[in-house]
Design a protein around this nucleic acid. Structure first.
Lengths: 348, 348
DNA sequence: CTGAAAGCGCTTACAG
DNA sequence: CTGAAAGCGCTTACAG
């Protein structure tokens, strides 16, 4: 073992480098490098000698050096609005699966709904710490995204969410149709007073879902009953809005379409507290089909998104962009209405 | 803008480097570097000239180059057993807060209960891609941990979990006392047939909790009633074990102490299905106080861990180790029994 | 306080 | 197929 002379290093012993391997294999560092990067360019004899030498000295390539030389980081930043939202875990699994297979790492950037955080993560690209950004939130400074999307060397893909006025490569679901499907179902059960509990009103996916809600009611001649309340996707906002929406009144809704399962579960709690039986007197539909939706009382009717697939496809698309390969810039994946016990026929 | 000559680079335009700044500021690259790293070593005039030049050319330091030179990565790997467990989100927040403040990034390594994954993440250290590992799972190859802990240049901290026979720097709670507390409480409510629904039996924290359960029952002369079932911390295993444990019989338990909230919520579903009213005929205690525990029916009595604090302290400890600063190698943080509606006096 | 120079550990175009 | 050499973009001990 060599002692390192690099001041400031916390290691007392230096790791073996490619030079040590070259010496042990009695070849040049170029050959060692080639053996690792493109073994087919090297004779089998050399390959074996180098492999043995690598094992012998305990060599592991210094990735910082490789990254510097290759001007890449093999790292993808995935920006989430909030890591505590269980909706994202399967998407993350999907992304990581594809990324790892392609030799990329995924750095998860939890923005905690703070655009400043997002900005800090964007800066990883110009500093060579990331090769691309996978946006799973629209809560980022729009100017930043516009800038990035205008650059040719800023690979950026959006999944789940989108911007109404920036044409980013996107993997998404059809939020409009999903909402229509949910509302059609409620109407078919006999509901006439259907409220939407939306996520943040400015959020494009919520706007799409509200539009689907609008149009479906209109199609059924129920435009007078349109009522949209706003939450933040979380349990608590669902509970609080539930208490308000379900307060005793002649026009109490008989059904609530929620833009997230967490909000729907909050509404269920409010209904319980107000002694409103679900689904007898109130139907509730959620969105996302998180694991918890099967364990709440009653089990939640909800719209399922192909989360693993969203993660996989978004990552595939991003990697294609990074490699300058041709790719389909937009994909819309399908959703499914999962009927459980929180919805039922209207009982007047 | 210069065109880059680096083959294989996907950028058409090279980013400005420290040389460009030096030229614009009419000084050496050393001075630019110093202005950035230790401004106090540079006159104010120079500092200003350099700052202007940086803004002018749009310079951002290439972190891969810095990392190579400094032999550090400013990255921490945090290994989780399973990112979909909501227990970890606040811990992650706590870790990231401290890490970011100290200039470190956190790479979250989701091991998906697969030791091979953990091994891949461990390899980030010798390849200079990470400066330390924060272990939040014991599901890693023990030999790897032993090796790592024997090395002086492998900063490693464990949080939440621990190994019975490896003395790692650790931030943890007192699982034994937490269990005693829960069981004492159930006994005080009149329960005599108390079952523990444990996590994986080999898991040291579960062993500690089971020990607390044992000792408390013994202290109350209830050793005959000891019964431990095993789950995997998830909803489904709680539900399935609940169906088994609660099947009609004279010795059906009147209380179940679960090693996770998810399992407790699964048990609640099983009880509902079997028409066993909670808490009238069955008390259930969870562990962790995840957000969902307030929204299930009935609201869950559970043991709360200071999750944010665990994340913060673990990261502080790890960074101290990386910097070779003195640090307290073991900390035990306190827990709290949160009584809600899933527990009550025994009604025979 | 500042600059010239060496060097971190790789990779790759070029020549043989 | 292989090697010598240049260079990726920084940082820092050394000298002035």
């Amino acid at each position: 073992m060599l002692t390192t002379s690099l001041p400031g290093s916390r290691n007392i012993y230096a790791m073996p480098t490619i030079k040590d391997v070259a010496k042990a294999a009695r070849c040049s560092t170029a050959t060692v490098s080639r053996t690792l990067a493109s073994p087919e360019k090297v004779t089998e004899a050399t390959r074996e000698r180098v492999s043995r030498a690598i094992a012998e000295v305990g060599y592991a390539p210094n990735v910082a050096a490789r990254n510097l030389r290759r001007a890449e980081s093999k790292t993808i930043v995935a920006l989430l609005p909030d890591i505590s939202n269980p909706f994202f875990s399967e998407i993350i699994n999907g992304m990581e699966e594809v990324a790892h297979q392609a030799g990329y790492q995924v750095l998860i950037g939890d923005c905690e709904h703070d655009p400043a955080r997002a900005e800090a993560y964007f800066r990883l690209l110009p500093t060579n710490q990331a090769d691309g950004v996978l946006l799973l939130t629209a809560e980022v400074p729009v100017s930043l995204v516009q800038q990035a999307s205008a650059q040719t060397n800023f690979p950026l893909v959006m999944a789940c969410e989108f911007f109404a006025d920036i044409d980013l490569p996107t993997i998404t679901i059809d939020n409009y149709q999903a909402a229509r499907h949910a509302i059609d179902y409620l109407v078919s059960l006999g509901h006439r007073r259907i409220v939407t509990l939306s996520g943040p009103a400015a959020n494009p996916i919520c706007i799409e879902r509200v539009r689907g809600y609008h149009d479906t009611l209109a199609a059924h001649g129920l435009s007078d009953a349109i009522h949209v309340a706003e939450g933040d996707f979380g349990f608590r906002s669902g509970y609080l809005q539930g208490l308000t929406l379900l307060a005793p009144s002649n026009t109490r809704p008989t059904a609530i379409f929620c833009h997230s399962d967490e909000m729907a579960i909050g509404v269920l709690k409010a209904a319980r507290q107000l002694d409103i039986p679900v689904p007898e007197k109130l139907s509730v539909i959620g969105f996302d089909n998180i694991g918890f939706s099967e364990y709440c009382e009653p089990e939640l009717t909800t719209i399922s998104q192909p989360r693993t697939q969203i993660g996989q496809q978004a990552m595939r698309l991003l990697i294609s962009l990074i490699k300058n390969e041709p790719a389909v810039r937009h994909q819309t994946l399908s959703t499914q209405l999962i009927v459980r016990q929180s919805t039922g026929k209207i009982q007047s």
